[in-house]
Amino acid sequence: MKLSKATLEILANFAVINPSIYLRSGNVISTKSVNNVTYAEAQIEDTIDADIGIYAVNEFLSTLGLFGSDFEIIADPADQEIKIKNARAQVKYTTVDPSVITFPEKTINFPVADVQFELKEEDLKRIMAAARTLRLPEIVVTQTDGKIVVKVVNSEDPSTNSYALEVAEYEGDNDFEFFVRVENMKMIDNTYKVLITKLGAIKFESEKVSYIVALERNSHFE
Rank of each mutant, 00 (worst) to 15 (best):
K2M: 10
K2R: 13
K5W: 00
L8S: 04
L8E: 08
A15V: 05
I17H: 06
I17S: 08
N18S: 11
I21D: 06
L23A: 00
L23D: 01
R24I: 05
K32W: 05
K32F: 06
K32A: 03
N36A: 09
N36L: 05
N36E: 14
E41H: 02
E41M: 14
A42L: 11
A42N: 08
Q43P: 03
I44P: 12
E45I: 04
D46E: 08
T47V: 09
T47S: 13
T47I: 09
A56M: 14
V57K: 08
E59F: 04
F60G: 08
T63I: 03
T63F: 03
L64V: 05
G65L: 02
F67K: 05
S69P: 06
I73N: 11
I74S: 12
I74E: 15
A75R: 06
P77K: 02
P77C: 07
P77N: 12
A78T: 14
Q80R: 07
E81S: 08
E81D: 11
I84M: 13
A87D: 13
A87H: 14
A89G: 05
V91H: 15
Y93M: 05
Y93N: 09
T94V: 05
T94K: 15
V96A: 07
V96T: 12
D97Y: 06
S99G: 13
P104Y: 02
E105C: 00
E105L: 04
K106I: 00
N109A: 07
V115Y: 01
F117E: 08
L119E: 01
K120P: 04
K120R: 14
K120F: 06
E121H: 01
E121W: 01
E121R: 04
E122P: 03
E122L: 12
L124P: 02
L124K: 09
K125T: 15
R126A: 15
I127A: 07
A131E: 06
A131W: 01
A131P: 00
L134T: 05
L134D: 02
R135C: 15
E138H: 09
E138N: 06
E138V: 09
I139P: 03
V140Q: 12
V140R: 10
T142V: 15
Q143K: 13
Q143S: 15
K147N: 15
V149L: 02
V153S: 15
E156Y: 04
E156N: 12
D157K: 14
P158K: 09
N161F: 11
E166A: 10
V167H: 01
Y170H: 12
E171M: 14
G172S: 02
D173T: 12
N174G: 13
D175G: 11
F176Y: 07
F176A: 06
F176D: 02
E177W: 09
F178G: 08
K186C: 02
K186G: 04
N190E: 01
Y192N: 00
T197C: 14
L199P: 02
G200N: 01
A201F: 10
I202F: 07
K203F: 00
F204L: 09
F204S: 01
S210V: 01
Y211Q: 02
I212R: 04
A214V: 05
L215H: 05
E216Y: 02
E216D: 14
N218C: 02
E222N: 12
